[in-house]
């Protein structure tokens, strides 16, 4: 019995942490703070995944998302040398009245999504079914092997693209010449 309560507590606590972390994240001035909040948000999301029976997804979330992608962000933040100056910029770029319209739009969108979710009849009674990692693996190597291949294509092209776009320019060129070189 207490397991049911524990399940509820953990589930809703994670939901709350996710939402709170996200809200905090989008309103920070400091880039590193925002990234840390994003990591917290992804970790709590991983907990939710596990509670929904998707252990593999939880693992992926932690390893790839919170682990690799966020670290990539952190590196770029370091390269962009965002320090006190940029924090001041961010403060200037975020006046209070700038939040109104996006919030309104997002609220409307959310309400529509909720209406969509709760209208109509569900096809069958459903509940949480755990999916074992073994089943996911069999599906990946079986019917969905093409997804894996396509994912590898995508990653390869992303790799090469990022490599080319962000290459180091010779430092004696001015920014105009840099533009010309980029066009070529």
């Amino acid at each position: 019995m207490i397991w049911a309560y524990l399940y509820n507590i953990v589930f809703y606590a994670s939901c709350g942490v996710t939402v709170l972390a996200t809200i905090l994240m989008i309103s920070r001035h400091n880039a590193v703070h925002a990234l840390l909040y994003l990591i917290i948000s992804s970790l709590s999301l991983a907990i939710i995944f596990y509670l929904l029976g998707a252990a593999f997804a939880a693992a992926l979330e932690v390893i790839v998302y919170a682990g690799a992608v966020m670290i990539l962000f952190v590196f770029v933040v370091m390269m962009l040398n965002q320090g006190q100056r940029s924090a001041a910029h961010e403060a200037a770029w975020l006046p209070a009245r700038g939040w109104i319209l996006p919030s309104v739009l997002a609220a409307i969108l959310l309400s529509l999504l909720l209406i969509g979710m709760y209208s109509g009849q569900p096809l069958q009674p459903y509940g949480v079914h755990g999916v074992a990692v073994k089943d996911v693996g069999i599906a990946l190597f079986g019917p969905y092997v093409l997804v894996v291949e396509l994912a590898s294509f995508l990653l390869l092209s992303g790799l090469i693209g990022a490599f080319h776009i962000a290459r180091k320019m010779p430092s004696h060129m001015s920014s105009n010449e840099l533009e010309e070189v980029d066009h070529g």
Binding site: T22, L105, L109
Partner: peptide, 9 residues
């Protein structure tokens, strides 16, 4: 849904 909208904001 909530996360999506927050991200949109």
């Amino acid at each position: 849904g909530i996360l999506f909208c927050l991200g949109l904001v």
